[in-house]
């Protein structure tokens, strides 16, 4: 087949794609018009929150999948072996530290972590990275600082306690799980068949990176969509007050705030302001728990994690994060008193 014919075929395909999309847009507008008569007004509110979560997350997810594609194409297992310390504790510390300087948000970090683990980064180091990535970075520190009336105390506590909690969680995970816990066993697919990277041209690698990014985007996208929908549903139909049934004390308030952090699924860059708005209702220890717990795990990224890791692992991780963050913040509140 000639090159020219090939190009023509591509052009036709692109045009065809546009026609189908245009048809789809018109059709869903017509469908929406008829549906809006039946749907309650609150569904429109839900839809607005749902879409805003997605639109807000898309740039971050794109950054995440592009970095993941980059790791896939440009980093080999040998690199990983050379860079990551063999010693478990030092590897955990390194994971947490790298996460602290890496500006990621919790939805963008899942594809990156999956790639890292698949490339042979030990699970405990990756988990440290997963936890501190969204929690500790310049943007989050700045927004926390501002949200609490330009007071460094809350931002400092968020970073400090969060970092310690992340270390503890990663440590706990390292004693519980030895294998990589990925859903598909990829270990056999790596290594042996890997060509020496220099044999593949840079352009080809770049294209490969984009291709991986596309697949990853769709892979993560569907879980992001499900998570965003559930979070929007909770925001529209569940009253925050209904969480108050857990009581008024410090323990109860901390549980409530952690529950809120989980279900609201806010981006870590924005949650400081929401957290601050609760400081009139809750003791600051509970607000701190909200600020630390939300970036580490929430509804949106649990669903994404479930698509990548074995569910038993995700459940254990969820449990360890919950318990450790709870214990850490309660301890701090007791000491601070």
């Amino acid at each position: 087949m000639t090159f020219r014919l090939y190009n023509t075929v591509l052009d036709v395909t692109a045009v065809l794609a546009f026609v189908i999309v245009a048809y789809f847009v018109t059709y869903s507008q017509w469908l929406g018009k008829s549906a809006s008569i039946i749907l309650p007004g609150s569904f429109n509110q839900l839809n607005t929150i749902f879409l805003s979560l997605i639109i807000e997350a898309i740039p971050f997810v794109l950054i995440g999948v592009l970095i993941a594609g980059c790791i896939q194409m440009f980093i080999t297992e040998e690199h990983v072996k050379r860079w990551i310390p063999q010693n478990k504790y030092r590897a955990i510390l390194m994971g947490c530290l790298v996460g602290s300087v890496f500006p990621a948000c919790e939805c963008g970090i899942v594809p990156i972590v999956r790639r890292l683990v698949a490339k042979g980064v030990p699970l405990h180091a990756s988990i440290g990275f997963l936890l501190t990535g969204p929690l500790i970075n310049p943007i989050v520190i700045l927004s926390t600082y501002m949200a609490f009336g330009n007071d460094m105390k809350m931002a400092g506590l968020r970073m400090g306690v969060g970092f310690v909690a992340a270390l503890l969680i990663a440590l706990l995970i390292s004693t519980l799980f030895k294998s990589n816990q990925l859903k598909h066993s990829v270990s056999g697919l790596y290594g042996s068949e890997t060509l020496p990277q220099s044999e593949v041209s840079f352009m080809k690698k770049l294209k490969g990176m984009c291709v991986h990014s596309i697949d990853e985007f769709f892979d993560m996208g569907k879980y992001l969509i499900i998570g965003a929908f559930v979070a929007a549903f909770v925001q529209t139909y569940v009253q925050a007050q209904s969480l108050f049934l857990f009581g008024e004390g410090l323990m109860g308030a901390t549980v409530v705030m952690m529950g809120l952090a989980f279900f609201l699924s806010l981006c870590s860059e924005a949650d400081a302001f929401i957290g601050a708005s609760f400081s009139s209702l809750f003791p600051s220890g509970a607000v701190l728990a909200f600020l630390i717990y939300g970036p580490m795990i929430d509804l949106k990224n649990t669903i994404m994690l479930l698509s990548v890791f074995k569910s038993r692992f995700v459940f254990t991780l969820f449990l360890s994060i919950t318990v450790i963050v709870f214990v850490c913040t309660i301890t701090i509140s007791m000491v601070g008193r």
């Binding site: 896939q72 598909h184 697919l189 593949v200 490969g208 991986h212 697949d215």
Partner: peptide
Amino acid sequence: SCAPGCTED
């Protein structure tokens, strides 16, 4: 397009 170490995902 994904020569080195293609995963099945």
